[in-house]
Design a protein around this nucleic acid. Structure first.
Lengths: 265, 265
DNA sequence: ATCTGCTATTTCGCTTTGCGAAACTCACGG
DNA sequence: CCGTGAGTTTCGCAAAGCGAAATAGCAGAT
């Protein structure tokens, strides 16, 4: 969707917002200004405006801007994902209880997988992804599972032009990746043998909605030491069963809309 | 912080964003336009711009706009809160194991308490607040605990002019509330006897940082049937112990800043 | 105490560019 | 086949966003 309808102040303000929200600490005007490469005055105005809107918080003591609480509220309130999450959580908990390993739910965003729910293993040694965290799609089991369900052209839009190696095992070429995805599609699940994180193995399956679109992926991850071939196969078949069940339990892709207006201006 | 430096396009775009993010379903242009009371054309431009920035998602199939994934990522990445959460979570889990009831962590935002972490009871009958959810400060144990630590003038800025009754028990007058807050301060914990949710009882304590500012509150909630006076007292004393420990474990309120610039423009 | 170098604010005039009414397109559904 | 109601595009005006530069405020250093 290219566009001549972009409002520049908003675009720039969103850059500023992104800069602050992506940082792990509150930032000063100066800092933000150089980071987004916009004039100090401009950034100043945006920061004030964003604070006013409740998206950012301002600490007058230290003259720094941080993430506002409104965003935290929002982060949890995406209907489509909440629905997905609500459906998946019980299954994920059950899988964790049964196998004792971490279960991850992720969706594709551009070329990245975003984890939207995680049921953590109770083992002391466990994978530590975070809800909201991201990994390249092509290095993860979830990502590969989702990609494997896509048509060639669609797929390419979710793979970066340059495959960067995260570990020694990361696939380097598109050809290798295509092969791997084919294999994943035929066998019904994808694997990640330490391609994303050294020593961490994942088995992932796609979740496809009733219309056949792969909208998310489910995986179980564990340290290589705890995951031999037999256990991996067991995980895979269990994941597949769960994923198809979930897929059928999802809203058909045409929910109701626009019943009435609520809030006032 | 009143301001003459507000950029109107940004302000209005944030209204649009808020409208979508606060809704539990994706919304059409038309819908948003009437809800925020801005001309169709204007809203159209903002929506496009926000999609472009990755804050909103667009479903061309149904012509509706929803919350973008970026926001979910952001929601989990507030340094100050993450720090607070990281410190609190183990304690909260421990409390839940020990007492079997739901433990809530909330911070004050304006006149509301926002729950930023919850350790849920395993009882079938349990309180069901959600992370990111909000309640008026003056009706909750966490809110009252936090308010009780504030000076009179500061406090007033976090109490709405009109106290609306959530249940038959909700305090109706500022005088009553002031009395209750005084009691909370002297006894070191606050109570909510079904004032926020019928049949739900809470015990809450403030978490104060090393500088003495009440930055959050911790509470245990349970159905009235499971929470007699003795158990309530037990919870309160345990909560107080935990809260002081947490308070001391927090960053002293003057962290380091602005070491160097990272991302490029 | 004064200076110095930093930062956040404020001013100000230019003209960019955001605005929204109205015209247009397009897909349904009667 | 035309009406209805949605999203999209056009267009000309002047509101208002812009950013250089001047100012103020606050450190720590001299």
């Amino acid at each position: 969707m290219r566009d001549d309808y972009l409002v520049k102040p908003v675009l720039k303000a969103m850059q500023v917002l992104d800069c602050i929200c992506s940082s792990d600490q509150a930032l000063s005007l100066q800092h933000v200004s150089v980071e987004v490469a916009l004039p100090k005055t401009t950034v100043f105005r945006y920061l004030r405006t964003l604070v006013q809107s409740g998206l950012l918080s301002y600490d007058p003591e230290r003259d720094v801007y941080g993430v506002g609480l409104k965003i935290i509220t929002w982060g949890r309130s995406n209907a489509r994902l909440r629905n997905l999450r609500d459906v998946c959580i019980p299954h994920m908990r059950a899988l964790r209880e049964r196998f004792g390993e971490t279960v991850n739910l992720g969706v594709l965003d551009g070329a990245e997988i975003v984890y939207i729910e995680i049921a953590e293993s109770q083992h002391a040694l466990r994978m530590q992804a975070k809800v909201g965290g991201r990994d390249p799609a092509y290095t993860t089991a979830i990502g590969k599972a989702v990609l494997s369900q896509m048509a060639e052209d669609e797929r390419l839009r979710h793979i970066p032009p340059k495959l960067r190696a995260r570990t020694g095992r990361t696939l380097r070429s598109l050809a290798q990746l295509a092969l791997e995805l084919d294999r994943a599609r035929t066998q019904g699940f994808a694997e990640d043998n330490g391609e994303n994180e050294e020593g961490s193995i994942c088995v992932g399956v796609p979740i496809v909605d009733p219309a056949g679109a792969p909208i998310a992926g489910l995986s179980i991850s564990a340290p290589a030491a705890r995951l031999d071939a037999a256990r991996k196969a067991q995980f895979a078949s269990m994941l597949r069963r769960v994923a198809t069940e979930i897929g059928q339990g999802l809203d058909a892709p045409r929910p109701k809309m626009m019943t009435q207006v609520r809030r006032q201006a």
